[in-house]
């Protein structure tokens, strides 16, 4: 099952990328308290998915030699952009990353069904539900931030 193991590896890697990106964005917007704290909470979700996946990875073996899904691997976000517009763009990028994670789990869940691999099915379905929560938060926060960021030009807050 070379392709399934590739996808398992991809899930592991993209969860890692998402967690790292969440933490980088959180640090970068540390002055926006809810973003700082919530990105940490969401990153822990991704950490947890990787932990749950670990025994499956051990069973299938991690295999990332196959070319095709490799192109799907999204680059992470190393640092946050500045200001309120920057936050909007960062949230959009996180949304894209999380969507990749989610579809990866969707693919794996289908494979797990075919293989009747209950452990993998449980892991992928639980992870998918949590990824939905991450995505929902990105959307909620985007909506809240957008009008102010787009319409009101912020001036630098100099004392």
């Amino acid at each position: 099952m070379p392709h399934l193991s590739t996808y398992v590896a991809l899930a592991d890697r993209s969860e890692q990328t998402l967690a790292e990106s969440l933490r980088a964005i959180g640090e970068g917007h540390a002055n926006i308290a809810d973003v700082f704290h919530m990105t940490g909470t969401l990153a822990k979700m991704s950490d947890q998915h990787r932990e749950q996946l670990a025994p499956v990875v051990a069973r299938y073996g991690e295999d990332d030699d196959v070319d095709e899904p490799e192109r799907l691997h999204a680059a992470g976000l190393a640092e946050a952009r500045d200001g309120e517009i920057g936050l909007l763009r960062d949230l959009q990028d996180l949304h894209v990353l999380a969507t990749l994670v989610k579809t990866t789990w969707t693919v794996i869940a289908q494979g797990a069904q075919g293989l009747r691999d209950r452990e993998l099915l449980d892991v992928s379905q639980a992870a998918m539900a949590q990824t939905d929560r991450q995505i929902r938060w990105f959307e909620t926060r985007l909506k809240a931030a957008a009008p102010q960021a787009l319409i009101v030009t912020p001036k630098p807050a100099a004392k």
Partner: peptide
Amino acid sequence: PPTNAMQLFNYAESGS
């Protein structure tokens, strides 16, 4: 959602 107090002061801080 309406802007909450904490966010209100964030916006006042950043000048928007």
